[in-house]
Each structure stands twice: as C-alpha cells, then as structure tokens.
C-alpha cells in the first residue's frame, strides 16, 4: 500500500517535470504538442476508488496549468480522463484481468493496453485542443492537430510503458 503510494507520488512529480521542463520546450510545431503526463493517470492502480481517479486527474491538470499559464484547461481534460478511465478499462479489458494491479502490457495484454492508451490519450487531446480553440472555427486544422499530437503522445507513452518496471 505504502509502496504503491510512493511509486505514484514519484511518477506524479517526474512526469510533471518531464512535461514542463523538457517536452513543452521542444516546440516542434503547432500541430504536434505531445502531453505525456496522462501516463500518470493511465497507470494508477485498477482497484483504486474512482473518486480518487477524478481528484488526481484534476490535481495533475492544475499543476500543468500553473506552469503553462492555461488555468482550467488541463484541469478539465485531466478530470475527464480520470472519470472515463474506469469505463474504458471496462470496455476493453476482460473482467478477470481488471481486478488488481497497475495497467500495463502484462496485466492487460498488449493489444488491450494499446487500445486503452490510444483511446484515452485521444479523448484527452481532443478535449484539450477543442477547449483551447474555443473561439476559432478552423475545424480541419483542429482535427489534424488532435490526430498528430495524439499519435505522438500515444507512441511516447507506449514506449515509456515498456521501460516502466516499477510495478
């Protein structure tokens, strides 16, 4: 129990630092803004109470917002991912696989885990960019941005999960 909490606290801090100090500084293009801090929400224990998922989603979003001056934006997307996580797991993963442990290639099965990551990352990015663009009406550009950024984020997260032996 204590071990799970400390591992996740460490992930929380490391992923925020990685996001704001490294990834946000890459400045690849306006079409490609990967957000890998979602990995923290994706790898929370499966049997964790759902209200904690939602609160942690809000909290990590708040921290990212503080660093990038976008108060409320990442809070919204993070909370949504925290809330929908349970349903996405239910949708893709068999019942006996989703009782305990941390989501990963071994616990969920490779295909299921990839589906789970891509789905939630795409939901997160689509919400984020749509909310950010609020007043702009450039639909195709927005779709392209969601598509490319989600693809890059998912790839980064999936590669990071390969090396994530913490569980």
């Amino acid at each position: 129990m204590l071990r799970t909490i400390s591992i996740n606290a460490l992930r929380f801090i490391l992923l925020i630092l990685l996001q704001v100090l490294l990834i946000d500084n890459l400045q690849l293009s306006t079409m490609c803004n990967p957000y890998i801090y979602v990995l923290f929400l994706l790898t929370l224990p499966v049997d964790e109470p759902r209200w904690l998922d939602v609160i942690l989603g809000f909290l990590i979003g708040l921290f990212i917002d503080m660093f990038s001056n976008t108060l409320g934006l990442h809070c919204f997307a993070g909370t949504l991912v925290g809330y929908l996580r349970y349903y996405v797991i239910k949708l893709f993963v068999d019942e006996e696989m989703r009782t305990t442990g941390t989501p990963g290639y071994e616990t969920f099965g490779a295909i299921e885990y990839i589906k789970y990551v891509v789905m939630l990352v795409t939901i997160h990015h689509a919400t984020l960019f749509a909310l950010e663009a609020f007043t702009l009406t450039n639909g195709w550009w927005l779709i392209g941005r969601v598509f490319i950024s989600s693809l890059v984020s998912s790839a980064l997260i999936l590669v990071a999960s390969l090396f994530d032996k913490a569980q």
């Binding site: 759902r50 209200w51 809000f58 108060l71 409320g72 809070c75 919204f76 809330y83």
Partner: peptide, 18 residues
Amino acid sequence: VMFLFILLEGISLVLLVR
C-alpha cells in the same frame, strides 16, 4: 463519483473563463 466529476469540471470551466 459523477457529482464529484461534475463539480471539478465546473471548477475547471470557471477557472478557464476567469
């Protein structure tokens, strides 16, 4: 859980608009 979710999303939107 749903009420908590709606509450936090509400807070986010208020922050965003403000």
